[in-house]
């Protein structure tokens, strides 16, 4: 099997792995503050939400600007979002609560914000698993329907973000705004809008270049 990699795919892998690289690098140097568990929770959580929001922006960006190169990284970025959500979850149950299951369940049960986060994570699993092409063909039109869950997952993650911060709501507010913008762009009237910028076409061609 021959692997093709375009410039935009390489960029996507690079950018999505960067937060993990910094996390590991700073962990080795013992720079994740004196409370590394909290630092890991904040960073993996933010990264998961940011990448997921980006993956949802891919389709409208293609529709509006004809930036079809971005479609090549829609699935990859979605999978990275799920990966960071997994790290966030494992950090919570492992590093934070030392796999003390009864305590973890006791804490989650009474905490709507954690139930919301856990639901988002559980819903992400079937999407990640069925992202391979075999499932895509096998599930056919159901695959598309299943993947619409992502809009619910995104909303749950933003809600989880709102509840988990101390009171610094700026970032969650920005994400919620972008989410609504995204939903508006899905309305047929707007999704038919097309803009043609020669510069965009140039960028698109650049990113579509095969590396090997």
């Amino acid at each position: 099997m021959k692997i093709h990699l375009t410039r935009i795919q390489l960029l996507c892998h690079f950018l999505c792995l960067l937060p993990l690289f910094f996390l590991i690098y700073e962990a080795i140097l013992n720079q994740l503050t004196v409370n590394p568990v909290r630092e890991i929770a904040i960073r993996t959580g933010r990264t998961a939400i940011t990448i997921l929001l980006f993956s949802l922006l891919c389709t409208p960006l293609n529709n509006l600007l004809g930036l079809n190169s971005i479609l090549l990284i829609r699935r990859t970025s979605g999978l990275y979002a799920a990966f960071y959500a997994l790290l966030h979850f494992v950090n919570f149950i492992g590093f934070d609560y030392s796999f003390a299951w009864s305590e973890i369940w006791g804490v989650i049960r009474h905490q709507p914000s954690l139930i919301i986060g856990l639901t988002a994570f559980i819903l992400l699993i079937p999407l990640a698993v069925t992202s391979v092409q075999i499932f895509q063909k096998w599930l056919n039109k159901w695959w598309k329907r299943l993947n619409r869950l992502i809009y619910i997952i995104m909303l749950l993650e933003i809600l989880h973000f709102f509840l988990a911060v101390r009171a610094d709501l700026l970032l969650p507010k920005i994400y919620l705004f972008l989410y609504f913008l995204l939903m508006v762009l899905r309305i047929p009237y707007f999704s038919r809008w097309k803009f043609n910028f020669p510069r965009i076409t140039e960028i698109n061609n650049f990113f579509n270049k095969m590396l090997f």
Partner: peptide, 19 residues
Amino acid sequence: VPHPGWSQSSELRIGETKR
């Protein structure tokens, strides 16, 4: 009495690994 975002039933003493 929990915070809306997290439980207050346990805490991490800085310097320790278990809550």
